[in-house]
Simulated assay, not measured.
Amino acid sequence: MMGRMDVSEVLLPGVGLRYEFTTSDGQHIGVVAHRGGDFEFVSYPAADPDEVHLLFRLTAEESDAITEILGAPRIAERFADLTREVPGLSSGQVEVTAHSPFAGRVLGETRARTRTGTSIVAVVRGEEVIASPGPDQILRAGDILVAIGTRESITGVERILAG
């Protein structure tokens, strides 16, 4: 069994989260997870963590592909961690029932973010996790939407999906 890697997380107000770790060969790596879904991968010398070197950027779509490859189920864990760090921010799970007017329709038609301020950060469909779903993601009965917002705004998403 492999040991747990030491990854530090730093909240970047207005930006997102930065994850930092040291690789087995001594490289210092950072991943900045922007609130909009984009990621920046950076490296920096141990002696001066302010001297950041951009390695590459990934769009939300590109990061979705990598997330699925590397273990999408962990994304919900990370957002739960974020909600513990930011007062007033909550995470919740909202089911798309068979009776929902949005079953079989695309996520964007719900206008959930516009109407409530809640972000849908993942769709859990059985064993599959669709990270950072786009507005064209088709919702199916039984899907669980992982939502980030206030408790009230998540309740608003539940009302929207219920019709």
Rank of each mutant, 00 (worst) to 15 (best):
V52Q: 13
R57W: 10
D50F: 14
L55W: 07
G36S: 01
A60C: 12
G36L: 01
R111G: 08
A80T: 07
E68P: 01
V42M: 13
D81W: 15
G108E: 05
E85P: 05
E51I: 11
A47L: 14
E85H: 08
L89F: 07
D38K: 00
P73G: 01
H99R: 12
A72Y: 13
Q93E: 13
H99K: 11
T116A: 13
F39L: 15
R57M: 14
H99A: 15
V94T: 05
L70F: 14
S43N: 13
A98Q: 09
V96F: 05
E61S: 11
V94P: 01
G37N: 03
A33K: 04
P49I: 05
V96W: 02
S43E: 14
E51S: 15
R115I: 15
A76C: 10
G71I: 04
E40T: 12
G117E: 07
T110H: 09
A33W: 02
S43H: 12
I75P: 04
D64H: 14
A72R: 10
L107D: 02
A98R: 10
G71S: 03
A103P: 02
Q93A: 13
S91R: 03
D48Q: 15
A60Q: 05
T118I: 05
G92V: 09
R115T: 15
E85V: 08
V96D: 03
R57P: 08
